[in-house]
Amino acid sequence: MLLVEDLHAGYGTSEVLTGLSLEVRAGTVVALIGANGAGKTTTMRAVSGALRPSRGRVVLDGRDVQGLDASRIARLGLAHAPEGRKVFGPLTVEDNLLLGAYARLPRFFGFRRRAKSDLDRIYELFPRLRERARQTAGTLSGGEQQMLAIGRALMANPKVMLLDEPSMGLAPVIVQEVFRTIRQLKEAGITLLLVEQFARSALEVADYAYVMERGRIAVHGTPAELHRDERVLSAYLG
């Protein structure tokens, strides 16, 4: 579903990604783990078009999307729940969700009616969001904002969803909730690329995992294979 080949990207003159390749098959959850600064978030940004890669190929559902604008890639079916959540603070929770489906809703009128079933689906998944539908997103707690960010990405009915550091800055209890949600998504058959600092938990939900080191993939394999890898075990799962 998503194929990345020999991706190079960076900021200014410093290159963060130095030839990264990975693949996410339809209906699977793939984890991307690695140390701080290895380039995980940069990978996500380069794939979704928030950052323009300098070289390489990104193929989404058979279509080369490398170098397109982020908004274009999003309309082609890639949803990115970014690091730090980035919900639209001044807008209400419901508006945030509606904007998640921006690409496939009418621009002026009738969008609320059209989005009704999708909204209900999200509210079923996150009942807390229904309670807060009219509240502005900025007033939500960190955990609720993360739910909103995931819900907003789901609203697009994406082919592939990128989920970047969903546990960042959250209390351990909330982190557990986030992982429960991810497991639910997996059961619902969502194709997911997950970046996570809690590598152990990430490996528990993932079907396949890549370990990043200095801008490229160092090791990859199924979680079981990685658990057998001495080096990975000591460096990331210690």
Partner: peptide, 18 residues
Amino acid sequence: VEAYLGQAGPGDAASEPA
């Protein structure tokens, strides 16, 4: 260990602080 470093807990958030 609980809030930051984490440990191999019962199946949830716990790992090295990367």
